[in-house]
Write a protein that binds this DNA or RNA. Sequence first.
DNA 1: AATTTTTAGTTAAACGATTAACGAAATGAA
DNA 2: TTCATTTCGTTAATCGTTTAACTAAAAATT
Lengths: 340, 340
Amino acid sequence: MRVTIKDVARKAGVSTATVSLVLHDNRRISVETRKRVLKAIHELEYQPSQLARGLVMKQTGNIGFILTEDHFLRTEPFYTRIFLGTEFEARESSHFVLLTTIPTQFTEENSLPRFVTQQSVDGIIVAGKVPQLLVEKLNHYNMPFIFIDYYPPKGDYSAVLIDNILGGMVATEHLIKLGHKEIAFIGGDIEHPSINERYIGYKMALEKHGIRYRSELVITSEEATGKESGLHAVCSLLDRDIKFTALFACNDAMAIGAMECLRKRGLKIPDQVSVVGFDDIESDVFQDPPLTTIAVPKFDLGIEAMRLMREVLANKVRKNKKVLVPVELVLRKSTSPLKK
Amino acid sequence: MRVTIKDVARKAGVSTATVSLVLHDNRRISVETRKRVLKAIHELEYQPSQLARGLVMKQTGNIGFILTEDHFLRTEPFYTRIFLGTEFEARESSHFVLLTTIPTQFTEENSLPRFVTQQSVDGIIVAGKVPQLLVEKLNHYNMPFIFIDYYPPKGDYSAVLIDNILGGMVATEHLIKLGHKEIAFIGGDIEHPSINERYIGYKMALEKHGIRYRSELVITSEEATGKESGLHAVCSLLDRDIKFTALFACNDAMAIGAMECLRKRGLKIPDQVSVVGFDDIESDVFQDPPLTTIAVPKFDLGIEAMRLMREVLANKVRKNKKVLVPVELVLRKSTSPLKK
DNA sequence: AATTTTTAGTTAAACGATTAACGAAATGAA
DNA sequence: TTCATTTCGTTAATCGTTTAACTAAAAATT
C-alpha cells in the first residue's frame, strides 16, 4: 500500500499535523523535530497524495489546455511547442496540464471538454484562434482562462500575445535600413488580430521613416494565409506590373508561396526582391534562399501563459492582464541591400 | 460554492449514500427514488468531485503519456495523432491523459515525469522508441505501462504495435502482383524492431511467391531512416549497376529520398521503377508522383492503447498482451504494372 | 399468526491530506 | 513569585465521495 502521512508521523513519533506543517515550512516546528520528520519522509519515500491535498485545498492542481484539432495536427509544430512551454513551466508549481482538442468547427452540438464540465481543472489555457461559441460557453463557468496567440473580438480577457506590431515594424524597418523604399505587404485573413497587427506594424514603420504608404503595394484581400495565398497575392501584384524591391509577408507560409511566384517569374531573391516572413517555421531553412523572418518564441508563449495563470490563480492580478512577448529578427539569405 | 452530493441528497430528500448508489446504477434503489435523485442531480447540475471519488477509490483517473521530445516535435504529426487517439478514447472511461516529454537522451541525471514519482496516474503509456534507462526506471514503480509502436529489447510488456510484417508483405505483394520480380528493399536503423519486421515481411512475400531473395537488391546498412538515407541507399544501388524494376522502402521518408535519387538519375517513376513506402506521412500526396504506401492508422494505435490500458487496470489481462493493428495499402501513383 | 426473506433505504467509517483552535512547557516581565 | 507571552506541538474537524454493515417495513412462506 501507499505510504501516507500517517506512516511518516508514526515513524517520526509525531502527529500527522506536524508532518503536514513541516511539509509546508511552517516555522512553528523546531529544527530537531523537522529534521526527524524529514528523515522519515525521505526513508519512506513519502509522496503526499495530490487527491487528498486537492480535496481539502479545493484545487485540482490541473490546468486545461484547449486547442482546435487542426492547430494541434498542423505539420508545423507551432502549438505543440507552446504546449511544451506550458507543460514545462507547470512543473515549477506542480501543476499538470490536460491537453485536449475541440473540433475546428465547434458548434452547439459539441460539448465542452470534460475537464471543464467536471471541474477537474483550476484554470484553462486556450491556444490559437477558437470559435466565439467556445469562449461564450467557457464564460458560463467560474474558471479563469487565458488566451495564447489570440484575443476574442468581444470581451476582456487575460492573454499572452505575440508582439505583432513590434514584429511588423522590425521586419519593415529591416528592409528600410537595407535601402528599400518600395516595400510590398501581403496578408490574408486580415480580420485576424495577429495579421492585422503585423500590417499595422508595417504601416507604422513606413511612417516613422517618412515613406509614403502606397495602397497598390498592399494586398490584404487573400482569404487564407497559406502558401497558395502568398503565391496568388504576389502574382497578382506582378500581373498588374507593380514594382517593388522588397516584400513583407504576414507569415512564412505566404512568404514561401511568394518566393515560389517570384522564382517562377524569373525574379532573383534577394537581388531583385528581398523577402521577409513572420513566424520562423521549420521549413524556412530549407528554402532557396533560406528565409529571413521574424521569430516567434513559441516555447516562451507557453511559459508566459502558465506564469500568468499562476498569478491569476493566486489573485495577484487586478484586472485582465496582457503579456506581450517580444519577437526577433532572424537574418538569413532572403534579404539584401537595395541594388541600383 | 461547488454543488456536492449533500446538496443533491437534501434536495431529493434522501441520504448521500442513496445519491451515490443511484450514480452507480445500484438496483437497491426504487425507480421512484432514483427518478427524484436524478431530477435533483439534473436541476443542480451536480458533477461528482473526481478528487473525492479518487481518494476513496484509490485511483487518480489519470493516465500518463510519455514521449521523447523529438518525437513530439516532429514535423510529421505521427505521435500527436497517436496521442489524440488516446485522449479521444480516454473520454469513454472518463480518464484524463497527462502528456509529457522526456529528453531524447534520457540519462541518469534526468528524473522521471512527475506524475510517475508522485503517483498521480493509474497507468502509463509510452509511445515510440525510448531509452532503455527509462524503461528500467519505470519498472521500479508499481504501475502498469503499455508501449505503443515500440517494444523494449529485453523484458516482457504489454504493447500496441503496428503489424509491420503484414505491412511489409502487403507492400511487396502489391509489387509482385504488378509483375515485378526484381524488387529492391532499402532500410536503415535495421536494429529497430519495426524496420526489421518490415524487412521480414518483404522476405516472406518473396518466398511465398517463389521469388528468390537476392541480397544485392537489399540495403539495410543505412544508419538513419531519413530522406538522405533513402537517397544514399538508392544511389549506391545504381552506382553498382544493380537492376531493379521496383523498390520497397522501409518508410516514406526514405522512399521520398529514393525517388529524388531516381529522378536525378533520369529514371521515370513509376514507368521504370515502381516505389512503395511505409507510414503514410502527410507529404506523400505532394510528391511527384504521389507515393503509394502502407498506411499506419495512427489514431487507432492511440485508441487501442487506451483500451488495452483499461483492460489492464481492470485486471482483465492475464499476461502481457500485445495488440497488432493492421495496416493497409494506399494506392497512389508511384507504382504501375511492369513494362517490358 | 408467526417466521423468514426481500426490498429500500440509512448510518457511519474510511480515503489522506490541511489547518483552526487549543494547550503545556518554557521563557520573560513586573 | 505571579502573570503574560512565546514556543512547539496536538486534537479534531473538514474536504466530497464510496460502501460495508445495519435496519425497518413489506412481502412471502409456513
